[in-house]
Design a protein around this nucleic acid. Sequence first.
DNA 1: TAAGGAAGCGACGCTAGGTT
DNA 2: AACCTAGCGTCGCTTCCTTA
Length: 361
Amino acid sequence: MNEDNQIIEADLLGMAADALYKETGLRLVNINELGVAEQRYDVKLRIEGYDDFRFTAEVKRWAQQTNFGALVHEVNQRPGKGMLVADYVNPKMADKLRKLDVPFIDAVGNAYINEKPLYIFIKGNKNRVQANIIKAQDAPATGRAFQPTGIKVVYVLIRNPQLVTAPYRDIANIAGVALGTVGWVINDLKQGGYLIEYGKKQRRLKNKKQLLHKWVAAYLEKLRPKLFLGAFTTENEYWWKDLDEGIVDYKARWGGEVAAAKMTGHLKPEKITIYMHKEGGNKLLAENRLHKHPKGNIQIYRTFWKDEENWGNEIQRFTDNMMDCVDPMIVYADLLATGDPRNLETAKIIYDERLDEFAYE
DNA sequence: TAAGGAAGCGACGCTAGGTT
DNA sequence: AACCTAGCGTCGCTTCCTTA
């Protein structure tokens, strides 16, 4: 509801820093302002006196409610050393985070920081009323529009404006979700001010820019982690260049940096992101000698959209004939998720060139 | 009859509490 | 401290009902 998330997150950051100071006497200061493209994604921190300790914060309300794996994934994807800044980290979570060596601080003084001479581990501080104030301001994302299935629906609605007025059954069909889901999503969008109804059975998206940003955040948090198949590696460093458009033969597409490079020419891809359909996946892995490796630079995700052929002709207008790349919306999200400065720069370009204009009312 | 809404159900994931 | 387990809430599906 309240989309002043930046403010709330800044508050949360401040509260957590204060709490850490009270517990340890260490000051955490913000040395970097907002991120790119209105989406605040990250803030850098350092501990005063130890100039070397820099973290990139992942500010997270409702840390308890979010998927733990996704959370760790997100924090680890921050550039440099990621740090979770949360409203409240319960003891269980604290242990798990420490095990995985994920630094965190929360608003009630729990913390884990393990950097060379410095070792801090505080857990068990209770969730106080103060933290609850933040909670009270907006309920957790319990609305259906930004849940995994809702994200699918919103995606096809944004990409296919005519579809907004189509019968629920059609929307459900194209988005690949159940009929019952569509009503929930539409109502949630209405309530959030992202959709209006007029005349008889007419609907229209509203506030599309903000919707897009919300979609990106929700996509990264709720849906993409579920699509993640794993990290892979291969001997030939430039296999992806050789493959290029041939990737469509495997029913797969480039995402992230490769897609961004193709769209803007502003990037030399280091991490390779692929979205692949169920069919053709094994062939893709085998014929290109990709094998699983925890540190591999090839990130593979499942596609969440249905085959484009079923979408009708309207969709082609939006894909810009880049049939070997995923939608710019997804590329944009992929880039933001890395947090890498050059990627953020490129994300901005993609936003300006391919997303901003369509998002106008 | 076509379309949206509601009920009910199962699957899943998280939490708290107990046990080893 | 690490591991189970039961309990509970949420999500999303299918099916049925209501309304124009």
